[in-house]
Design a protein around this nucleic acid. Structure first.
Lengths: 116, 116
DNA sequence: TTATCATATCATCGCTTGGTGATATGATAA
DNA sequence: TTATCATATCACCAAGCGATGATATGATAA
């Protein structure tokens, strides 16, 4: 995968949002909203696999959404900026009003599910 | 594509963010920040293809990020909620500080580009 | 009615990307 | 040093998803 001239402002902005656009990463971000955690603690809280968490963390860190600090053989992660929290909160209040539609948000044909 | 038990809160939230996580959709949302536009006008402003715009609009509409109103043979779209605008603005202020990292946000190996 | 314009739908293709499992790195302790 | 623990990296696979082009729908006008 290459990053070349695609590096326009909107692409960067899209990447920022993509950091929030996966439920595993959201789970990780949620776990960090109350304070900093080591990778092991995140694994425990999210119940995701260690490599999965580590992969997502490196993405989130590159994106600047979380910050890391090594202490001994542990690495503690935290949200890098209060606006990360604000974005999550703002999204929640928006969700409260549009949630009915969001869960069907897809460009593709969605099969009717019998029940649930 | 099916949507079944995956419909948890974080999945819905992730879907909301995914609405913002593509540069074409951001382009469309940006064009709507100043007011409502018909599909044709959006196509013109974004220089995306008609079917592409229409596909993205239906996604954005299902997500509740934009609202549509038919007038004659035209359909006018607008941002559905002021918080959509707020989310974009908040992301911009965050970007101003973390942009350096974001454009490299990827879990995968990024080839060094010779120049640019 | 038929023709035309505006928009929507959908099948297809190919790139993107999330999850896994194995392995590597790197720090501490013995 | 060697062993162990915490974390990171990476190749692989499968599913997700954006763009295109052809076609369909639906509204207006003639």
């Amino acid at each position: 995968m290459f990053i070349t001239a695609e590096t326009t402002y909107l692409n960067v902005k899209a990447r920022l949002f993509r950091g929030f656009s996966d439920s595993s990463r959201l789970k990780i971000l949620e776990s960090l909203r109350t304070g900093e955690l080591t990778v092991g603690e995140i694994v425990e809280q999210t119940r995701l696999s260690q490599s999965n968490v580590s992969n997502h963390l490196s993405c989130l860190r590159d994106c600047g959404l979380v910050a890391a600090e090594q202490s001994g053989k542990f690495v503690a992660y935290r949200l890098s900026d209060p606006r990360v929290n604000e974005l999550l909160t703002l999204a929640e209040t928006l969700l409260a009003d549009v949630a009915r539609g969001v869960y069907e948000c897809t460009r593709y044909v969605v099969e009717e599910r019998p029940n649930e």
